[in-house]
């Protein structure tokens, strides 16, 4: 076990890489969630169809294969992506497809009365979504987004297969260079779990801030 301490710098770098992958992919996934989720509610049929194709493609195929495709196949077509970019795109596009359903569902669940009130006040369609429907939908999105964030963090492990030195990759190195198998993998399981705990705490924090600001209690939010 003492031997594993020699790999501390490497482990820290791996942890940092996993965090970076998670954060960057999460930002990408969030943007995609809103763009695709709202496009699915568009009044234009072609926009809706495009968004649905995107959703079904990324939800219906393996993230791992998508990542291999981006990393190994796209260069043959003249588009070379760095491993980090390919990893982030695969993870972000994937979770973005799930997230878009969260956005669509939450926005759709805002009552008809809110549409009618904003029409009666003569809001434009943009203003209705921006100032009435989305702000009411966001608190409903937080718990499912929290779950997706953890899914995303776990998914980043696949990037080790395209040479990204994340936690999983580091564990493989340790296993190859020492005779240890149990220790490195046990250790990274613990680290993954700790990262997940931080993400849960972050989600709760966001939910609580919204709840406090609006004087409401949100379902599933832990009391501070």
């Amino acid at each position: 076990m003492g031997q594993i301490l020699e790999f501390t710098p490497l482990l820290i770098e791996g942890t940092w890489m996993t965090i970076k992958l998670t954060v960057v992919s999460a930002v990408l996934a969030l943007v995609i969630s809103f763009v695709v989720g709202l496009s699915r509610l568009s009044s234009s049929r072609s926009v809706r169809v495009l968004a649905t194709i995107y959703l079904e493609f990324f939800r219906g195929t393996s993230a791992l294969v998508q990542m291999f495709f981006m990393f190994y196949v796209l260069p043959l077509l003249g588009l070379t992506l760095s491993p980090f970019t390919a990893g982030v795109i695969a993870c972000g596009f994937n979770l973005g497809s799930y997230g878009s359903e969260v956005v669509r569902g939450a926005v759709q669940s805002v009552g008809k009365g809110q549409h009618e009130a904003s029409t009666a006040l003569n809001y434009t369609v943009y203003q209705r979504y921006r100032y009435v429907l989305i702000p009411q939908a966001v608190p409903m999105m937080i718990p499912p987004f929290g779950n997706l964030l953890i899914e995303l963090m776990k998914l980043t492990a696949v990037t080790s297969l395209i040479t990204i030195a994340d936690l999983t990759f580091v564990a493989q190195i340790i296993r190859a260079q020492t005779a240890m198998t149990l220790e490195p993998f046990l250790l990274i399981l613990v680290i993954y779990f700790l990262i997940a705990s931080v993400l849960v705490g972050f989600t709760d924090f966001v939910a609580r801030s919204i709840a406090r600001k609006r004087h409401i209690t949100l379902a599933g939010v832990r009391r501070s």
Binding site: E116, A117, R214
Partner: peptide, 10 residues
């Protein structure tokens, strides 16, 4: 003005 007010709850 509506029967169910339809104020913006947020």
């Amino acid at each position: 003005v509506f029967q169910h007010f339809n104020l913006f709850p947020h």
